[in-house]
Design a binder for these strands. Structure first.
Length: 407
RNA sequence: GGGGGGAUACCAGAGCGGUCAAAUGGGGCAGACUGUAAAUCUGUUGGCUAAGCCUUCGGAGGUUCGAAUCCUCCUCCCCCCA
């Protein structure tokens, strides 16, 4: 098999011609590289550049969620050309069930399968341990899921999850963890944390024993857990820091705890995680959550809010949030958002978008999703600009006022 | 011309003497949604000076302590037979 790799690091345009991907050793593969460009002097906000085999990511970044290999209701051309998405997510549990590993392997990985040629990050199924709690059993070895589709039984061990993530072929792959619920008994959180840490060691071990399938390196991100207990979070952040991975994540937040508690945990964990590695806060959040966490030193975010809430008629705009179902938009022929960040904003009126929602038309979901993702990507891009300009803190304050209390 | 069925809230449609301001859908109005079992889910939907009262089940009258429910007439709609 003749393989061509675009290598971004350390020498950007170099093309390697290799005969067999199986013979690649790690030093020939493109390692992910993170460059910290600037840290805000009034907060801990950072602007950076993350380079992967599938392209660069300017941080802070928001990553649209594409659980099943698709960002719901949004086409990839809109995602990259109009919204400016630089990386998207996929989900191990969901892709494993459908289309399944044989199909993804035959396709040559998720990038080939869905034609998204920019970076991809796959979540490990750890969130499904939380969200599908009724359908699974957890023990030291791993998690047994009952498929939410047909009830069939599937065992996810850290090793199995790494194998699946190898087959999916994302640039960034998440360690298998347990996302604990909130509130959570401390004894449970402590025990769960121990399991998550031991699973992490097994993930690292498995990766060291296997090769990437498609000729580019995959970076494992471990996940800090510990619920909302400061001592557990500290212990976890220290443990994860010592693993020396390419980047680090914080999980188990935005599961119902008050925002202040989330910020407290993020603050603590960011003070421990290495500054020279990207920090990813999983599943967060509202626009204000994102701004607050950027200020605490987070570089990467993902959340279903812009897409799911968009499909349900909620629009995030720079003048606050609106429920497009509301009758007050019935004859409002003003643009969806005058601070247009995507083509839909000036082209369509609120009245038209409301009509689409009221009529159950698919285009409504598409427009709202494009708009919301456009807003989120604009928000982080703007944040980055202000970090580089040293105007982040005042801008954040202004934005917080504009976005309103509900977010 | 003869025979039969029906008219209930924005729409469709249950209810067939009191527990009915009236089931259930739809529609309307509002809310929720944070590493997606979600184009989903929840609440609400006659009026008011609001733990109470008032006005509603085609129209008018009647029976009854009490009527959306029973009777009479009227108006309109549908089906079958000529």
């Amino acid at each position: 098999m003749l393989l061509s790799i675009q290598c971004r690091n350390p020498e950007p345009n170099q093309t390697l011609q290799l005969l067999n991907s199986q013979t690649l050793s790690i030093e020939y593969l493109c390692r992910m590289k993170f460059s910290l460009l600037h840290t805000d002097s009034q907060s801990r906000a950072r602007a950076g550049l993350l380079e992967t085999a599938h392209g660069s990511i300017e941080t802070p970044i928001f990553m649209p969620v594409g659980t099943a290999g698709t960002v719901k209701a949004v086409h990839f051309s809109e995602l990259s050309n109009d919204i400016g998405a630089q990386i998207i997510l996929g989900n191990t549990y969901h892709l494993y069930l459908r289309p399944g590993m044989e199909t993804l392997a035959a396709a040559g990985g998720l990038h080939k399968f869905n034609s998204w040629d920019k970076p991809i990050l796959t979540d490990s199924g750890g969130y499904q341990v939380f969200s599908l709690a009724a359908n699974r059993k957890i023990n030291e070895e791993g998690v047994t899921f009952r498929s939410h589709i047909d009830g069939s039984k599937h065992i996810f061990t850290p090793e199995h999850v790494m194998d699946i993530e190898r087959t999916i072929g994302a640039d960034i792959i998440m360690a298998f963890d347990e996302c604990t619920p909130w509130p959570c008994e401390k004894a449970y959180a402590k025990n769960s944390l121990g399991i998550t840490h031991r699973w992490l060691k097994r993930c690292i071990q498995r990766l060291s024993e296997t090769q990437p399938h498609y000729g580019y390196e995959q970076s494992l991100f471990p996940i800090v857990q510990g619920s909302t207990f400061a001592d557990l979070r500290k212990e976890s952040a220290e443990f994860i820091s010592e693993c020396g991975c390419d980047g680090n994540a914080i999980g188990g937040l935005s599961v119902g705890e008050p925002a202040e508690m989330m910020y407290e945990m993020t603050d603590l964990v960011c003070s421990i995680l290495p500054a020279d590695k990207p920090r990813y806060l999983m599943g967060v959040g509202t626009p204000i959550n994102i701004l607050e966490n950027i200020a605490l030193g987070i570089d990467m975010f993902d959340c279903v809010m812009p897409t799911r809430n968009g499909r349900n008629g909620m629009l995030f705009t720079s003048k606050g949030i609106i429920n497009i179902h509301n009758e007050k938009w019935k004859r409002d022929f003003s643009p969806i958002d005058e601070d247009a960040h995507t083509f839909v904003d000036m082209r369509h009126t609120k009245a038209y978008l409301r009509h689409l929602f009221v009529s159950g038309e698919i285009l409504g979901s598409q427009i709202a999703s494009i708009h919301n993702l456009g807003f989120y990507l604009w928000l982080v891009k703007e944040a980055r600009k202000h970090i580089l300009d040293e105007t982040f803190t005042s801008w954040k304050k202004e934005m917080t006022g504009v976005l309103g209390e509900r977010l």
